[in-house]
């Protein structure tokens, strides 16, 4: 197997994993076709593209992925889902504000992320991880636009994001499990 073929297989495998960011219905309908189109495009770029186009290819794909996945996710939300997304952004912004005013203490920020994601997981138990991903990025990256570039390129900000994601994910999954448990119990009681 040539190096180019290995790169092609790895690229397609990585892209297949990225497709989990799209809504399940969209993914079920277009996953195979999207991987096929990605494979054709990558194959053409590796075979016929200039070095510059090969360098640009992952950037173009990242741009395409981020814009289309977020759009499809937002379009797939109903009114309740959209309300939860707005609430998650509000919680994230508040946690960011608290974090900014308590530079030495991390527990208030982590508590807000944990409780907020727990409540959202409780309200909307399907795909709870999305609430964690909707809250956490605000904490290291929210603020004035002027120093946004510095924060995005700062390893410290990404480390904070990784730290904040842990309680957010725990909270959202815990809320979701409790809600599902309550639902299950209610069904069992109803049947009995």
């Amino acid at each position: 197997m040539k190096g180019r073929d290995i790169f092609l297989h790895l690229g397609c495998g990585f892209y297949a994993v990225l497709l989990y960011a799209y809504p399940p219905e969209f993914r079920a309908r277009y996953k195979k076709e999207m991987i096929r189109a990605f494979k054709d495009d990558l194959h053409h770029t590796l075979r016929n593209g200039s070095l510059w186009s090969q360098i640009l290819f992952p950037l173009q794909m990242a741009n395409d992925f981020l814009t289309s996945a977020s759009r499809e996710r937002i379009e797939s939300l109903d009114a309740m889902g959209m309300s939860c997304l707005v609430a998650a952004s509000g919680i994230g912004l508040y946690a960011s504000y608290v974090d900014h005013h308590n530079a030495t203490e991390v527990y208030p920020t982590l508590s807000i992320a944990l409780i907020g994601s727990f409540l959202l997981g409780l309200i909307r138990p399907t795909h709870p991880c999305r609430w964690a991903f909707a809250i956490a990025p605000w904490i290291p990256f929210a603020g004035s636009i002027s120093n946004m570039r510095d924060r995005i390129t700062s390893p410290g900000a990404w480390a904070i994001l990784a730290v904040v994601l842990i309680p957010s994910l725990i909270g959202a999954v815990a809320g979701s499990l409790i809600r599902r448990g309550i639902g299950l119990r209610a069904e069992i009681t109803k049947e009995a």
Partner: peptide, 30 residues
């Protein structure tokens, strides 16, 4: 045309200014 064929044709007819990736293309097609 199939998906990749559409991507190529759009790229050609816009002189490369519009180069939709699979996500944008299938979102639009949907």
């Amino acid at each position: 045309r199939h998906g990749y064929g559409i991507m190529q044709e759009v790229k050609n007819q816009t002189g490369g200014r519009l180069n939709p990736g699979p996500g944008t293309l299938y979102g639009c097609l949907n």
